[in-house]
Computed example of a mutant assay.
Amino acid sequence: MSVPEGVVLRPAVAADAEAGADLHLACWREAYGPLVGREQLEARLHDRQRWVDAWHAQLADGPPRTVAESRDGDLVGFAVVGENRDGTKVSGRVAPYELYAVYTRERWWGSGLGQALLDAVLPDGATSLWVLEDNHRAQGFYARNGFVPDGAREHYAGLDCWEIRMVRP
């Protein structure tokens, strides 16, 4: 799928850490606000500096991130895939890759930007992801891209909710 007009996809760089953290926080509020308790969500998001520090660390040492930048210079989405982090924490075959994140700001939902980001980072090999069990919108997006639930489920304490694993062979 093509990138929506007025947006470019590019590799994230160290200078994106603060804007990336702000984007990440905004995306979590928009995506998870309707799905989890407000107090729980805000408790997880309240420390902006922790998110900025995490972005700095991940940009320095983590797998490459792809960001979507709007014509006015704002970051409006990002995606990242890396080695699977599941190890032996859950049962079942573990895919070699894991989609760590694909987020866009709510105003870009349905625009094709999420698809463009996914297409930009998705590897050829089997890939898994974790998605909130109640996030049917995201699950539908992943299903349209060949991901299926594999039966793994775990409690995500950070938001006090359940998530399921989906895998694309």
Rank of each mutant, 00 (worst) to 15 (best):
P63I: 02
V36I: 08
N135H: 03
Y32W: 10
A31Q: 08
W28G: 01
G37Q: 12
D61I: 12
Q58E: 14
A101F: 09
G33S: 01
D119T: 11
E69K: 00
D53A: 10
E69F: 09
V81Y: 08
P96W: 14
V76W: 00
Y32C: 02
D53K: 03
L23D: 00
G37H: 09
V102N: 02
L118K: 05
R85I: 09
R50L: 12
L45Y: 12
D74L: 10
V52T: 08
E69I: 08
L132C: 01
T66M: 05
A101D: 07
G82T: 04
G114M: 01
G125F: 13
G20Y: 05
Q49S: 14
A26T: 11
D53W: 10
Q115E: 12
E133T: 07
L75E: 00
S70F: 15
L117S: 03
D53Y: 13
A79I: 04
L25Y: 09
E83G: 10
W55R: 06
H56W: 12
S111V: 07
P96G: 01
D86R: 15
Q58I: 15
G87L: 11
D22W: 14
E133D: 15
D74S: 12
L59P: 01
L118V: 08
W51K: 04
E133S: 11
G77F: 05
V102W: 00
D72V: 04
G73S: 06
E69M: 05
K89E: 14
Y100F: 09
R50I: 10
A43P: 05
W108R: 00
L122C: 07
L122V: 10
D53C: 07
A43M: 13
L25C: 10
E83R: 11
Q115P: 02
A126V: 08
D47P: 03
V94K: 04
A60P: 06
G77P: 05
G125I: 13
R44F: 15
A101M: 02
L41Q: 03
V90A: 15
D134V: 12
L117M: 03
T104G: 01
A95C: 09
L75K: 00
H46K: 13
R29I: 06
D119P: 04
G87F: 11
R105A: 00
V94M: 08
P123Q: 09
G87S: 09
D134M: 10
A43W: 12
L59A: 11
